[in-house]
Amino acid sequence: MYSFETELLSKGFKYIAGVDEVGRGPLAGPVVAAAVILNPDEIIEGLNDSKKLTDKKRRELSIEIKSKCLAYSITYIDPIEIDKINIYQASKKAMIISIESLKIKPDFVLSDAMPLNEINIPYESIIKGDSKSATIAAASIIAKVERDDYMIKLGLKYPEYGFEQHKGYPTKKHVQALNDYGVLDCHRKTYKPVYDAIHKQVKLKI
Rank of each mutant, 00 (worst) to 15 (best):
H174I: 05
M95E: 13
K66A: 02
V183T: 04
E64Q: 14
K105P: 02
S50N: 04
P159R: 06
K66R: 10
H199K: 15
E160Y: 06
Y150F: 15
Y169H: 10
A138I: 14
S131M: 12
Q201S: 13
V109K: 00
R147Q: 05
V145W: 00
R188Q: 11
K57W: 02
V145R: 01
F13H: 13
D49L: 11
N117Q: 04
K205V: 09
L27H: 01
S125V: 04
G162H: 03
L70V: 07
H187Q: 03
I43M: 13
K93H: 11
P79F: 12
A177Q: 03
L204K: 15
S91R: 05
D55P: 01
I77G: 07
N39V: 09
V202I: 15
K68G: 06
I119H: 05
D107N: 02
T6I: 13
D149F: 06
N179Q: 13
P106M: 01
E118W: 06
K132Q: 15
N86R: 13
K189E: 07
K173E: 15
V36C: 03
Y169M: 06
K172V: 10
K200D: 14
I37G: 00
K84L: 14
T135W: 03
K128N: 15
L154C: 06
G46R: 08
R147V: 06
A94L: 11
F4K: 07
D49I: 12
L116K: 08
T171M: 01
G23E: 01
T6P: 01
E60Y: 02
T6S: 12
K144M: 00
R188K: 15
S140C: 07
V19F: 11
P170V: 11
E124K: 15
G12I: 10
T171E: 02
I77P: 08
I136F: 03
P159F: 07
A177R: 02
Y191G: 03
E45S: 14
I44L: 03
K172C: 03
P115G: 03
P115K: 08
I77K: 10
D185S: 12
Y15P: 03
A94I: 09
G155M: 09
E164L: 08
K84S: 14
F13I: 07
D78I: 05
D49F: 08
L178N: 00
S10K: 15
I198Y: 02
A94K: 09
D180Y: 05
K51I: 11
Q89E: 15
P115S: 04
S50A: 12
L70C: 07
S73A: 04
V183I: 10
K205Q: 14
A134P: 09
Y195T: 08
H174P: 03
V183F: 04
M151Q: 11
E81M: 13
D83V: 07
I136C: 05
P193L: 07
D180F: 04
N48I: 12
